[in-house]
Design a protein around this nucleic acid. Structure first.
Lengths: 238, 238
DNA sequence: CCCTATATAATGGTTAAACCATTCGACGTT
DNA sequence: AACGTCGAATGGTTTAACCATTATATAGGG
């Protein structure tokens, strides 16, 4: 029924005041907060307590703290990093397995691509074509590292095409956490790279005619296939 | 290419040591850490620095700190709370709108219900039937508050039926953040409650025959309809 | 004997003042 | 103009003391 009455923790009050100032826009990204020795006086508290508040704000991803003269707490643009970090904790704690993540990713990426295809503009298609040609060139040069980088760019751009930041955030959080597995257990070679490129070509064609359902099928199939490959490798190792 | 070399922040080292101990299972949930005055000696640091580390761990949701004698830092079971909190920041900062969330929710809940239907056991169906009958009783008594509570229980149980914690986590994070909107802008009445109950009956029937696609259609339609109602109310207010 | 009120001590929360470490910029030297 | 040196601003750390909260022990009353 009722919430626990506010605890008497001074640093919490400081956190809330600064957080509210940031969220309400009174402090915009890039703004530098006054030095600790001034802030402590403004909040009428001690430096130790003030620093505990700054530690919390830093952990929340609201500020960044730099050292040295002209250093200090700088207001950050809010991003997906804290979410990705919390998700990483869940994974490392064993609460969720790689298979759980993969299953989720297949569904999410399916929905995401469907939306992107439905909303694709001519400009989007041109952008994807540019990326596709870039990837193709790297493939011909056998430059797997840059190929992968371009592949990442394509996924990111498709996220942008949804025009929905939630999908972008979730995809990034998942990718950040799953990436190290792929790097370790699924090194790129000529065959796999070509397969990747071919899948992307099919996806691009579906996007061109705004066929969301087809695009969704293509990416889900793609993710499933590459995921299976990795699961096999994983089993082989253990 | 390279990562920034490790900064020389003592409290970060303390955070990592304790975090690793928790994640590796050396410290299990419920365990109480030694008092600050002992920990500070174990890490050979000052109390202020140690407390900054504890603040970070608390914010990460890894420990909980209690006051008074026999108080102290207690290892928490990792859950979805920090993710929900970070998501709340993204919403409050204006980076994501209610419509963005709703669109995402429609897709997620569709996938989630599809999985749940495919994996539904006879025990699951019995459990859902019990919940359905409970909701029906509250409907007949015009007890909207308990009806909503039971509705929430049904959604949670369907999450469990996926057997995938990622879906459970995401659904909870989204629901925690969207709930206050629904409470404020979409109060329950007889007509809406009956509509809700009818939708759930249809969902239950689809689950009974493990028809994932049908279940998915039903829930997506349900979420869309209730979301539209709320969007209208929202527009009316502004 | 049991219940309640009070006292005690353990523990987190806060304060103060000093010193250390890092970094940027000014200034001077070549 | 390029480079090196030095000083000051700022975050990071330490110490020592005191305050606030709360579980438990103790004492008193019924």
């Amino acid at each position: 029924m009722f919430k626990k009455a506010k605890q008497s923790r001074v640093f919490q009050d400081v956190v809330e005041q600064i957080q509210n100032a940031i969220l309400s826009g009174k402090l915009s990204p890039g703004t530098k907060l006054p030095p600790e020795r001034e802030l402590k006086d403004m909040f009428n508290t001690s430096r130790g307590t003030l620093r505990e508040a700054l530690r919390v704000l830093e952990q929340k991803g609201l500020i960044e703290i730099k050292l040295g003269v002209s250093g200090g707490a700088i207001v950050k643009r809010i991003d997906t990093e804290p979410i990705a970090e919390s998700l990483a904790l869940l994974i490392r704690s064993g609460e969720v397995s790689l298979e759980h993540i993969s299953e989720f990713r297949i569904k999410i990426e399916g929905s995401l691509v469907e939306l992107a295809a439905q909303r694709a503009t001519k400009k989007d298609i041109r952008e994807l074509e540019t990326l596709y040609n870039k990837a193709k060139a790297y493939y011909k040069e056998h430059d797997w590292e840059n190929f992968l980088k371009t592949d990442e760019e394509m996924h990111t751009y498709i996220g942008i095409m949804t025009r929905n930041p939630v999908f972008q955030f979730v995809q990034k959080s998942i990718h950040d956490n799953i990436h190290k597995y792929y790097e370790e257990y699924l090194p790129m070679n000529k065959k796999r790279t070509l397969e990747n490129l071919t899948d992307f070509k099919r996806l691009l064609d579906a996007m061109r005619i705004n066929d969301g359902k087809a695009a969704s099928r293509i990416i889900m199939d793609h993710v499933k296939r590459f995921n299976n490959k990795m699961q096999e490798k994983l089993k082989g190792k253990t």
